[in-house]
Amino acid sequence: MHMKTSVLSRNNISPEVSGLITRLVSLIPWPARRQAMGDVVVTILDSKPRVAENEFGWNRSAVALGIKEFESGIVCVNDLTERHKPKSEEKHPELLEAIRKIMEPQSQAEPRLRTTLLYTNMTAQSVYNALLAEGWSEESLPAVRTISNILNRQNYRLRTVQKTKVEKKQQKQTRSSKTSGK
């Protein structure tokens, strides 16, 4: 019976050297780290990203890209700013303005003014219905859950709006008024 030997033991790489490689590569900043991973995999792991994933815990797709970068000498540039999906209010600032116009009369500040939260008794569904009543089409509006997220990002919180309490004037009862009532 033939046991399959690991690529590291076949290439005489001890666990200590393996740990050293992992620590040294982790000190290299991106994107050069990806290229260093590719160099290690080509040199000691027979160009096998899956083995690098198992032995070093590296992402094999990053290792595969690192191998290509190492062999070609061309570094792939990541434009991370283009990766995020724009929020609904970023895509449609007029929607945010319409929501604010609906919410302002229905909101009040937090009673102790310790935060910038605005309390309202309007739900996201009622805001959605109010936008429809203002003439927005269903196709142009985001889902109710998205409107709820927009309200949360704008610091609107669903709470029962407190009614203002009327202070009553307290009548001072004097001894004379108590005695005259007898």
Rank of each mutant, 00 (worst) to 15 (best):
H2I: 12
H2C: 09
M3Y: 08
S6M: 07
S6E: 09
V7P: 01
L8R: 07
R10L: 13
R10P: 00
N11F: 04
N11L: 08
N12K: 14
I13L: 13
S14M: 10
V17D: 08
S18F: 01
S18C: 11
L20R: 11
T22V: 13
T22Q: 07
L24N: 10
L24F: 11
V25P: 01
S26T: 01
S26K: 14
I28K: 04
W30Q: 12
P31V: 05
A32H: 15
R33Y: 06
Q35Y: 01
A36K: 04
M37I: 05
G38V: 02
D39V: 06
D39P: 00
V41Y: 01
S47I: 02
P49W: 00
R50T: 12
R50Q: 12
V51E: 14
V51K: 05
A52M: 07
E53L: 07
N54Q: 12
N54T: 10
N54P: 00
E55D: 14
F56L: 15
F56E: 02
G57A: 09
R60W: 12
R60I: 06
S61A: 11
A62I: 08
V63T: 10
A64L: 11
L65R: 15
L65V: 09
I67M: 06
K68R: 14
F70G: 00
F70W: 04
G73M: 07
G73P: 04
I74C: 08
V75S: 06
L80R: 12
E82T: 09
R83E: 11
H84F: 10
K85V: 10
K87E: 13
S88D: 05
K91C: 10
K91T: 14
P93F: 02
L95M: 08
L95C: 06
L96K: 10
I99M: 14
R100V: 07
K101Y: 03
M103V: 05
E104S: 04
P105G: 06
Q106G: 04
Q106Y: 03
Q106S: 13
Q106P: 00
S107W: 04
S107N: 01
A109P: 06
E110C: 14
T116P: 00
T116Q: 12
L117K: 09
L117W: 05
L118T: 04
L118D: 04
L118P: 00
L118E: 07
L118V: 04
N121R: 11
T123H: 02
A124K: 01
Q125T: 09
Y128A: 01
E134W: 07
G135F: 02
G135M: 09
W136Q: 03
S137Q: 11
S137R: 07
S137V: 03
S137E: 13
E138Q: 13
S140T: 12
S140M: 06
P142M: 05
P142E: 04
P142Y: 05
A143D: 10
A143I: 05
R145M: 08
T146I: 07
I147P: 00
S148C: 06
S148Y: 05
I150V: 13
N152H: 13
N152F: 11
N152P: 01
Q154C: 10
Q154W: 01
Y156L: 03
Y156D: 01
R157M: 10
R157P: 00
L158D: 02
L158Y: 15
T160E: 15
Q162E: 15
K163S: 10
E167A: 12
K168V: 13
Q171D: 14
Q171M: 07
Q171H: 08
K172S: 06
T174N: 09
T174P: 00
R175I: 13
S177I: 15
T179R: 15
T179S: 06
S180A: 09
S180H: 04
K182D: 10
